[in-house]
């Protein structure tokens, strides 16, 4: 059901080091998520102006740029997490499989099942480790009670937590380390079988070892799931992503294959940012 075996094989063929983006072919015409001149703001101020981006299915895209450049606002708009914020306004479109996410026919809960999110700070729920993994499955009615044990095991194995927690599935998630908590949150997000996962600085609170675990996992999952990653870690963007978008002063300054953005950017601002002169 969760195709862990096939994902596992992919993981084994993907070396943990660099150059992941070269290892499998993306179909540039198969666009899962797309923004069309998206302009976002709160109250009177415009945070982001006219962003058009395409995310090919199975790709990993990094969003980089200084704080306040609008990356996170952009990311949170992709599954309508900003809708409830007071004064939020938007123009333009976000298309998921060519359909607007703001269409009145769209079920918000279904949209968020398809486009999940992982946060900067691991936020497991105050329930057992097992319940954390299963909560989305239960709420969306995705599986039968009989399968819950198997699903828990599959997902925890998938994120590499099974050995660490198999003897305390009913224990508190807060007994886990920060890195393990983030992996648990990833398992929880994967449990509802999302097509796109939005990651908001997912490793900025983690130690280097945990960062590697999470990055390897993202690389391993990527053919099945499309990732959009906000990161301040330039090396991470470089290691991890197929494409990189550089946000600067409320605009999408430059977008292209990660290699090109880091080695031969066309904009001076991009060049200065990725080389460390600003930022």
């Amino acid at each position: 059901m969760f195709e862990s075996a096939s994902r596992g094989e992919v993981a084994d063929t993907v070396p943990a080091e660099k150059g992941r983006s070269e290892l499998y072919e993306l179909d540039p015409s198969d666009i899962v998520l797309k923004t069309k001149s998206l302009t976002l703001g709160f109250g009177g101020s415009t945070v982001l102006d006219g962003v058009s981006l395409e995310f090919p299915r199975g790709s990993i895209t990094s969003l980089i740029g200084p704080s306040g450049s609008g990356k996170t606002t952009f990311l949170r708009s992709l599954n309508r997490m900003n809708d409830g914020i007071r004064g939020y306004r938007r123009q333009g479109e976000v298309l998921l499989d060519s359909a607007s996410i703001w269409d009145s026919a769209v079920n918000l809960l279904q949209l968020r099942r398809r486009v999940g999110m992982l946060f900067q700070r691991a936020n497991p729920f105050p329930m057992s480790i097992r319940e954390n993994v299963l909560v989305g499955v239960k709420a969306h009615g995705l599986a039968k009670r009989n399968d819950f044990d198997e699903i828990t095991e599959t997902l925890l194995k998938e994120v590499g937590l099974w050995k660490a927690v198999s003897d305390r599935l009913n224990g508190s998630p807060f007994s886990l380390s920060g890195g393990q908590q983030q992996l648990l949150c990833l398992a929880r997000a994967l449990a509802v079988r999302p097509e796109v996962l939005l990651l908001d600085e997912p490793t900025s609170a983690l130690d280097p070892f945990s960062i590697e675990l999470v990055e390897n996992l993202i690389a391993k999952l990527a053919p099945k799931v499309t990732f959009v990653v906000v990161t301040h870690n330039l090396a991470q963007a470089r290691r991890l992503s197929h494409a990189t978008a550089f946000f600067f002063q409320g605009r999408l300054a430059e977008y292209g294959p990660t290699n090109k953005i880091f080695t031969a950017p066309s904009q001076l601002d991009t060049q200065r940012y990725v080389s460390g002169s600003i930022g």
Partner: peptide, 15 residues
């Protein structure tokens, strides 16, 4: 209650 709880729930598509 930490805002991360409800945010995490929303992001998971929970009602």
């Amino acid at each position: 209650v930490p805002s991360g709880y409800s945010e995490g729930g929303e992001a998971l598509g929970l009602s």
